[in-house]
Amino acid sequence: MAQGKTAAFPRQRDNRADLTRPIGIGFVLVAMMPLVILPLASIFYYGLGFGQGITFGFTQGPLHFWNALTGPAALFSLKLSLTTSSVATLCNVIFGLIAAYVMSKYDFKGSSALMIIISLPTAIPTAVAGFALLLLWGRTGLLGQYLEPTDYQIMYTTAAIILANIFVTFPLAFGVIKPALDNLDTSYEDAAETMGASRWQAFRFVVLPSLRGAIITGALLTFARSIGEFGSTIMVSGNLKMQTQTAPLYIYTKFNAGDVEGANAIAAVLAVISFAIFSLIIFTRKRLEK
């Protein structure tokens, strides 16, 4: 009897472990269904014409999806989103890299206060961020009033979109690069210096390659966040068709005008881009940060 019990005991445990596994995974999937997966799926479901006649009454199949996607305003909005996000990403990665280097190398008065300020923008509602930019650069704004006589203006231009993107994604790249730099042993730089390298050469040849993974991850995060930016963009861009209308603004405008199909096409593209970016982030993490 005793023997049977000892033999049965581990099997019982195995059985229980086998049960928790599917239950756990099942719970996660079931919870995600209405919250995340189904909303995303419907974009493609209706976008590709499967929902014909069921809802809205506009969806007419893949050809119409394609036409909606390749319309000049739609293409323009996608292109604008991609370029402004790229510029904002470039700015924030360069800034994040320099700021991370400075903050992790030097200890100075007020460095922790600076850390908080750098990290602040993600915590601020995007509408507030857009409003703040307007107050600074608008016609009567703190700095905008000096631009007024020059006939040059920042608000309601591409530059405004970039500024808004930079503001809301400011700490993302910094937040990824700083811990990577903190963890990097300073003896690498010491070694490079004793071997004859200047500060810059040590940074260029030794520090930078070690940060490759962090830089790529930081850039992708910034890009993903900024390509979907809506709240601040709609306040500072003016939402001018073929001028300052980014992809999220296009979706919003089309939907408001009743053109669900037009909105749906761009939504599908943005969803694919985001999916691609996050797959890349996970992929680079696995490959580069080993």
């Binding site: 690498y188 004859g196 390298a197 040849f205 070690s210």
Partner: peptide
Amino acid sequence: RARERNVGVIFQNYALFPRM
């Protein structure tokens, strides 16, 4: 400066450049 001295240092953890 360190780079002008022409000494070779073997560090405790060797500090070999991981990406080279």
